[in-house]
């Protein structure tokens, strides 16, 4: 099949730096404003007050976090706001040593999926872990939200600084 492969021209980084190849650059310069919408808007109001909240579909009984205005399984409007806990279980985690543009981090970030207590099983959210030795993190570990002080909270997912191990670890 070798004859069916076109011999494409490849470039090296230095071909750009040394002016061996012509190119144009363009910065899209597109700034977006995304509306939080109904369900997440309310979720953030509650975060500002130091609480986590979900919605429940009374048809399948699921309690969904983050909250949604409709149940994607039943395709019906969600029926009720339900308070949930600010504790949960680590479903999975990583120790991340690079930024998105591939610069090295000395101290790893610890992203994790945390299944929130009081929500239906498997309702996980993405957040970071803190106040923990990276080597001591385990799947199944119980964690609790560490909130910013009330006056610093803005109605954002970052009103929770991170989740830390619940006592006993």
């Amino acid at each position: 099949m070798k004859e069916h492969v076109y011999d494409t021209t490849y470039l090296r980084t230095r071909d750009f730096e040394e002016g061996k190849v012509l190119f144009e650059t363009w910065d899209p310069n597109a700034k977006y404003t995304w509306d939080a919408g109904i369900a997440i808007g309310k979720f953030f109001q509650e975060l500002k007050a130091g609480r986590l909240i979900g919605t429940q579909c009374l048809n399948c009984q699921r309690i969904m976090v983050p909250p949604r205005m409709f149940c994607e399984h039943c395709f019906l409007p969600a029926d009720a706001w339900v308070p949930v806990e600010d504790t949960g279980t680590v479903v999975t985690f990583s120790l991340c040593y690079v930024t998105w543009d591939m610069n090295r981090l000395e101290e790893p970030q610890i992203p994790a999926v945390v299944a929130i207590d009081g929500a239906s099983p498997g309702m996980g959210i993405l957040h970071l872990l803190g106040e923990v030795d990276p080597k001591a993190v385990t799947i199944g570990m119980s964690v609790k939200a560490v909130w910013k002080p009330a006056e610093e909270r803005t109605g954002s997912i970052t009103d929770i600084r991170y989740f830390k191990p619940l006592g006993g670890f």
């Binding site: 983050p66 991340c96 998105w100 993405l126 997912i157």
Partner: peptide
């Protein structure tokens, strides 16, 4: 809302 402010990659 629930993820990008955490600056995930």
């Amino acid at each position: 809302f629930t993820e990008r402010p955490l600056q995930p990659n």
